[in-house]
Design a protein around this nucleic acid. Structure first.
Length: 513
RNA sequence: GGCCCGUUGGUCAAUCGGUUAAGACGCCUCCCUUUCACGGAGGAAUGAGGGGUUCGAUUCCCCUACGGGCUACCA
């Protein structure tokens, strides 16, 4: 009786794709791959007021960047399309009507104002947000409370109306969650959710059930914030007579703010200086640009690795996994129940691990691109051999820029103070002497450069170590980077000499003034 | 307020009744290196509280506290 594994990621195209969304997509993907199943993308665009052009395409791009592209979706029609709920609009109404015939739903003609008035009227200290439920629906304008003839009239006059679920009283609805086990709900606490809106579109509640059924979804992963509405969905699966086809549910733990309280939001990223969206999101309405992990210099391998370990682990103590390892090791019973705080430091560590693991040639194109964006004249060929020199110093792709910049142009800023403190005629003499030696050097090789440096130092009675930091600052601009003689080697003779002589002038001027 | 979920170091977390309560990030010290990193060796730091169950509870149950989610014709 075991059917094929089919899972879906069902975002609504309302803006950038959040970390938590990507993780839900990822867990779906990993589960599907682990079980040889199918990963479906369904666009939940039933709220026309929140629709944002470009968002769907952006979501697809994010998933592709992460390497977790869906097997079916609006981009890749399968046997279960269409994959946009707006394009499935016509299918929902019939099910809503069917529920009415069976007494499991009813028409409601209440206007937004009337609903507001109801909430005001029944609001109390003990019940600040009254629900549209068994005790209240008798007081409202719906097909359960009104005369049949009146309902007939309202309908024939095309009075705007919605269809609500008729939640039975005094029932215990039991959810069997793959992560949380049994969760019990009392139907008296569940309100008569709108199933079909006045504009004819279904709400999430109806659409998720109809679509999961029609798309033959076997396992449904979603965020924990959906747990409270699970009984509505369970009831619908039952009412529609599809109980035996219902997917197994898994409510994922939330990703929380690093500080303070609540679930992680885009605002936290803005506030704390880290990305929350997978990729840059440019809001077409507000023109606002929100930075993404990709543009901040993260590798997709690191991004999904980090996300996979947020709320799940394989118990081995290992943490760095590539996509295929994740697919292999993923299992629902090792998903956590509790929410996990997002830690940007750890995210950067994952990225650094992945940068170290990547071959220089793989990194080169992206690093090259980023340097060009900064106006630095570079080529992939020139950069590739340098990447290995600096990559263990980089946590993001952006870190390569300052690490590589000085190889291609004179340092933009120089930490003169670090040299000046101990600058004297002896040192000036040393660098002048050494420059002459370098100029005459036959072979521009790292070892030869270093040898000559040491020889001149010894000849002048200076410890090589005492002038090495000065040299580094002259060439690099600061106290960082690979071994200094290696840098001189890559810099070539002319640049090396010119930076040294430029430094001597600067330091001399400062000394004489 | 109500309903639901959760709770091991600062953070991610292992443990599925018996451990000196792993490991990782971050932090600190030292080594390597006259830069910064990488690497290596150490260190500080954890079972929310109270009741049970049990020979024995971090592990099972209950209560409390705390945290979170939901409470729309949004998903």
């Amino acid at each position: 009786m075991k059917s094929a594994v089919r899972v879906r990621f069902a975002p609504s195209p309302t803006g950038g794709l959040h970390l938590g969304g990507v993780r839900t997509a990822l867990f779906n993907y990993l589960f599907a791959r682990h079980h040889g199943g199918t990963f479906v993308l369904r666009i939940e665009d039933t709220d026309q007021t929140r629709f944002v052009p470009g968002a769907e395409h952006y979501i697809l791009d994010c998933l592709e960047w992460c390497g977790i592209s869906p097997d079916e979706g609006p981009h890749k029609e399968g046997r279960f399309g269409p994959y946009r709920q707006s394009e499935r609009k016509s299918t929902y109404r019939a099910f809503a009507e069917q529920l009415i015939q069976q007494g499991h739903a009813y028409y409601a003609f209440d206007t937004p104002e009337e609903l507001e008035a109801m909430r005001e009227r029944f609001k109390s200290e003990n019940n600040p947000s009254p629900q549209y439920n068994a005790s209240i629906r008798a007081h409202m304008r719906n097909s359960l409370a009104l005369d049949a003839s009146e309902v007939e009239r309202l309908l024939s006059e095309k009075t705007p109306h919605v269809i609500r679920i008729n939640v039975p009283a005094n029932q215990t609805v039991v959810l069997h969650d793959m992560i949380r086990g049994e969760v019990h709900f009392n139907s008296n606490e569940v309100d008569d959710k709108v199933l079909l809106k006045a504009d004819g579109m279904p709400t999430y509640h109806l659409a998720v059930v109809v679509d999961d059924y029609q798309m033959q979804i076997s396992h449904a992963f979603r965020g924990e914030e959906w747990l409270p509405s699970a009984p509505v969905h369970l009831l619908l699966w039952d009412f529609l007579g599809w109980k035996n086809s219902m997917p197994q549910w898994a409510h994922l733990p939330l990703i929380l703010k690093p500080d303070g309280h609540g679930k992680l939001s885009k605002r936290d990223g803005d506030r704390l200086g880290f990305p929350v969206f997978a990729m840059d999101w440019h809001d077409p309405r507000t023109q606002e640009l929100t930075r993404g992990f990709r543009e901040m210099g993260f590798l997709p391998e690191a991004f999904i690795n980090m996300l996979a370990l947020l709320g799940w682990n394989d118990g081995s103590g290992e943490e760095v996994f590539d996509r295929s390892q994740l697919c292999e090791r993923f299992s629902v019973d090792r998903i956590h129940k509790g929410g996990a705080r997002f830690d940007f430091e750890k995210a950067k560590w994952f990225n650094q691990e992945w940068i170290k693991r990547k071959r220089d040639e793989e990194l080169a194109p992206q690093v090259c691109e980023r340097m060009k964006q900064q106006g630095i004249q570079v080529t992939q060929e020139a950069i590739t051999p340098l990447i290995g020199l600096v990559k263990e110093r980089c946590q993001t792709l952006m870190d390569f820029i300052p690490q590589l910049d000085y190889f291609f142009r004179d340092p933009v800023s120089v930490d003169w103070n670090s040299i000046r403190a101990k600058w004297d005629s002896g040192k000036k003499n040393f660098f002048t002497e050494w420059s002459n030696e370098l100029a005459a050097l036959a072979e521009w090789k790292t070892e030869a450069i270093e040898d000559s440096f040491k020889q001149v130092a010894i000849r002048l009675g200076i410890k090589p170590g005492e002038v090495q930091l000065s040299l580094r600052i002259m060439l690099v601009g600061g106290k960082f980077g690979p071994p200094v003689f290696l840098i001189a080697h890559y810099l070539q003779k002319d640049s090396t000499l010119s930076r040294i002589s430029h430094a001597i002038h600067i330091l001399d001027d400062a000394a004489s003034s």
